Amino acid sequence: MGAESPKRTAAAAAGGPLVREFGLLLRAATHIEQRINAAMRAEVGIGHVMFEVLIHLCRDPDEQVSQRALAQNLVLTSGGVTRLIDRMEEAGLVRRVPSPDDRRVTLVEATEEGEKTFLHAVDVHARIVDRYFVAPVTADDRRRLTTSLDQIITALRDDGTPGTPEG
């Protein structure tokens, strides 16, 4: 009997617990996000990324949000966020305003139509999240999961490594 073949070694690695567990997390998140996106497009006329922008803009009505901050929070390039805000502005969901503090900075705010659209999207989001994130697990399991995810995000933020949320 010779050494184990590279094919078998690779197969064992692909079936390893860390690969499997992280894969489950990614698949679950991706499938839920796809359901949210499809429902929002069908019922509200916006995609999940536009919804994420509206979350940032509606979370604190007194906060001024720059395009740069949106790009960082949404992990988009500056060009990507510019095109996204262009589309949202054309749809009447947001408007750009000059910063009163720095004329080089453009701020983005939700319009009244954007706020109405956001509230409709929140209902769609809640329905999908309830069906696929809340209903399948117990409240205790969901609480443990969200606590664990928060700890993971904190570890990434505190790490400072390039490619992490704060690195």
Results as ranks from 00 to 15, higher is better:
1 M>V: 06
1 M>K: 11
2 G>W: 05
2 G>H: 08
4 E>G: 04
5 S>F: 04
6 P>G: 08
6 P>E: 12
9 T>G: 04
10 A>Y: 07
12 A>L: 12
13 A>S: 11
14 A>C: 05
17 P>H: 08
20 R>E: 12
24 L>P: 00
24 L>Y: 10
31 H>Y: 04
36 I>H: 07
40 M>V: 01
41 R>C: 04
41 R>E: 15
43 E>Q: 15
45 G>D: 11
47 G>D: 12
48 H>C: 06
51 F>I: 00
53 V>I: 05
53 V>A: 14
55 I>S: 13
57 L>P: 12
57 L>N: 14
59 R>L: 15
61 P>I: 03
63 E>C: 01
63 E>V: 00
65 V>P: 08
65 V>L: 08
67 Q>C: 02
70 L>W: 11
72 Q>H: 12
72 Q>P: 00
74 L>H: 06
77 T>Q: 09
77 T>H: 09
85 I>A: 03
85 I>E: 06
86 D>M: 01
87 R>Q: 09
90 E>Y: 01
91 A>P: 04
94 V>P: 02
94 V>A: 13
96 R>Y: 12
102 D>F: 01
103 R>T: 14
105 V>P: 05
106 T>I: 05
107 L>R: 05
110 A>M: 02
111 T>Q: 12
116 K>R: 15
116 K>N: 09
116 K>Y: 03
119 L>C: 04
119 L>M: 10
121 A>W: 03
122 V>L: 12
124 V>A: 07
127 R>Y: 02
127 R>S: 07
127 R>K: 11
130 D>R: 11
132 Y>V: 02
132 Y>Q: 02
133 F>Q: 13
134 V>M: 10
137 V>K: 07
142 R>Q: 09
144 R>Q: 14
148 S>R: 13
149 L>V: 07
150 D>V: 01
158 D>Y: 01
159 D>H: 10
160 G>S: 07
160 G>E: 10
160 G>P: 07
161 T>V: 03
162 P>V: 00
